[in-house]
Every structure is written in structure tokens, then in C-alpha cells.
């Protein structure tokens, strides 16, 4: 069963100090499960807002978004159980060990094998030996690997990553992006990345540029 996200002529505006600011307008976009996407553009262009909108966490000012799940067309709010997030700042819970951070979404879902699955994912991202370490004892790259495992452990259909390598050096950034693409591909998850990194964007199948409120498909880099 293949799933897809459709955005149809969506616009996003907000009020700032009495004046209406338009982030983007009349955007149409499809995100297919199993494919990879990049959204690039200058700071303040509205990339993160667009990501929130695609993930169903925000409502567009005009236009509509749909979640096509097999034969069913659902509102975007139904998407939330099928998405995973990866942040630039990692946002691991500091009191929890690496293993427990990964087990967190599974435990919330009442998964009885949360610990085993989390350990499996920890091995997968190459941190099996750091299971009982807390985030403060991990390097930036290691923290991001834990964050990737946490986003993928419950096997979501869509992964949204906002600047996932923004805080990392080149070597680490390369390793993390390889891991990210590999994991998404292995689990047939769509990957939507917001990034300033041309190198990272170049690895995706579809690269979009958001500038002056317009979304344009960039030629493959």
C-alpha cells in the first residue's frame, strides 16, 4: 500500500506588527512514500513552515492538503502517526540513556518489545556500545545518530528532517546523511529534508528551492 502527501495550491501568511507577511502562495507539491526530497532556500524563506504544513502540524492559510493512504484520501491531520522528525538540535531528553531515548516513541505506543527494538536500532546506527550513555556523554554526531534511530524506530512512512547535519562537521555530516538515506530506503520511508547544504540536497531524488514565496524544482545537482 503506497502512501502520498498532496499539497494543492496552499498559501501561508501571518500578521506581524499589523502588516500581513506572505511566506509562500499557491504551492502545489506531492511527497511519495519511498522517495527523497530536499527543500533549500535562503533563511526566512519559510522552509520550516512548509515542512510543518507538509507534516500536517500546521494549517495552510488557503489551499488544501491531503494524505492519500492506499485508496483513502484523508485530511493531513491523520498523518501524524506516520511521521518521524529529526531536528538540527537533536532534542534528546537529557535524563534518558541513548537506548531509552530511542525506546521512547515505542513505549508511548505501548510496544512490549520497545527495549529490544531500540537496541536493534542502536546497533544499526553503530552505537550499540553506547546504550547506557546519556546524551551529555555523546558527541554531536552520535547524538544525531540516536535521533535518527529514534525517528525511524517506529517505522513511520515519512521522515522530516530539518537541517539534520547543520551542527556537524563535514565528515560527520556525510556519515549521518548516508545513514539517513540508507535507513529511509531500507524501510521504504519518504525523506523530506530542509537544508542549506547543497551536498546533502544533491543526494535527494527531488530538490526544491523556496525563494520569494515560490517553490521551484531545481535541476539535479
Amino acid at each position: 500500500m503506497s502512501c502520498r502527501i498532496n499539497l494543492d495550491h496552499v498559501s501561508q501568511t501571518f500578521n506581524a506588527k499589523g502588516s500581513c507577511v506572505t511566506l509562500f502562495e499557491q504551492l502545489s507539491l506531492s511527497i511519495n512514500q519511498g522517495e527523497t526530497y530536499a527543500i533549500t532556500g535562503p533563511s526566512g524563506a519559510g522552509k520550516t513552515s512548509l515542512l510543518m504544513l507538509i507534516a500536517g502540524l500546521a494549517q495552510p492559510t488557503t489551499g488544501q492538503g491531503h494524505y492519500i493512504k492506499g485508496q483513502h484520501t484523508l485530511p493531513l491531520s491523520e498523518l501524524k502517526m506516520d511521521v518521524g522528525f529529526i531536528f538540527q538540535q537533536f532534542h534528546l531528553l537529557p535524563e534518558l540513556t541513548a537506548l531509552n531515548n530511542i525506546a521512547l516513541p515505542l513505549k508511548l505506543r505501548g510496544d512490549k518489545h520497545a527495549q529490544q527494538k531500540a537496541r536493534h536500532w542502536l546497533d544499526k546506527v553503530g552505537l550499540g556500545h553506547r546504550a547506557d550513555h546519556k546524551p551529555s556523554a555523546l558527541s554531536g554526531g552520535e547524538q544525531q545518530r540516536v535521533a535518527i534511530a529514534r525517528a525511524l524506530v517506529f517505522e513511520p512512512k515519512f521522515i522530516f528532517a530539518d537541517e539534520p547535519t547543520g551542527n556537524l562537521d563535514n565528515d560527520n555530516a556525510q556519515r549521518i546523511s548516508d545513514l539517513l538515506f540508507h535507513c529511509c530506503q531500507a524501510h521504504n520511508a519518504a525523506l523530506v529534508i530542509v537544508t542549506h547544504s547543497e551536498a546533502l540536497a544533491a543526494q535527494t531524488q527531488h530538490c526544491y528551492s523556496l525563494c520569494h514565496g515560490q517553490l521551484q524544482l531545481s535541476p539535479t545537482l
Binding site: K80, H91, L93, P105
Partner: peptide, 19 residues
């Protein structure tokens, strides 16, 4: 602060504010 991050993460895992 910690509670705020925890709640935000729970929402990012696909759960509602009611949870």
C-alpha cells in the same frame, strides 16, 4: 523546560496534546 521539550517530542511522535 524539560517538560516542554518532552511534550513537544511526544507531539512530534504523532500524539495529540490530549495525550
Amino acid at each position: 523546560g524539560k517538560e516542554g521539550v518532552k511534550n513537544s517530542l511526544i507531539i512530534s511522535f504523532g500524539f495529540s496534546r490530549a495525550t
